[in-house]
Design a protein around this nucleic acid. Structure first.
Length: 115
DNA sequence: TTGCTGACCGACG
DNA sequence: CCGTCGGCCAGCA
């Protein structure tokens, strides 16, 4: 009976849940989320989930998720040329050449902030 | 069903 | 420092 594609417990759903917990003005990495979910090796899936985040009813702050170097690797997926950067800058985050400045200062680690 | 892709990460030379 | 490769696994033609 079921074969429902709407597995609320799916990996994707968990990724969205964590992403929504990212505080305003903070960012995290795909790998950090993956590690928090217990699938560190599947960091790519986190990025893939973000690609489908637009399909979610609830808004997902995908712009607050970047790669481990703090580079806006997903900016091209936000439509526009630098929408992602503008969103982050509007939250007080400094960015230069697609690279977040003081990345360590604004980094939000779910492993440390959540239980 | 098989094969390729991908918003990543870590290791290696 | 830089380029390349393997692993991870869900979605799609």
């Amino acid at each position: 009976m079921k074969e429902n594609s709407e597995h609320e417990d799916s990996f994707f759903a968990k990724v969205y849940a964590v992403a929504r917990l990212i505080p305003y003005g903070r960012v995290t990495s795909y790998g950090a989320i993956a590690e928090y979910l217990g699938t560190k090796g599947s960091a790519r899936m986190v990025g893939w989930a973000m690609n489908s985040s637009h399909s979610q009813k609830l808004q997902v702050p995908a712009h607050r998720v970047v790669n481990r170097t703090g580079m806006l690797s997903g900016k091209h997926h936000f439509g526009g040329s630098n929408l992602m950067q503008e969103l982050l800058e509007s939250e007080g985050i400094k960015i230069e050449d697609d690279q977040i400045q003081d990345f360590d200062a604004v980094f939000w680690n779910p492993m440390k902030e959540l239980y």
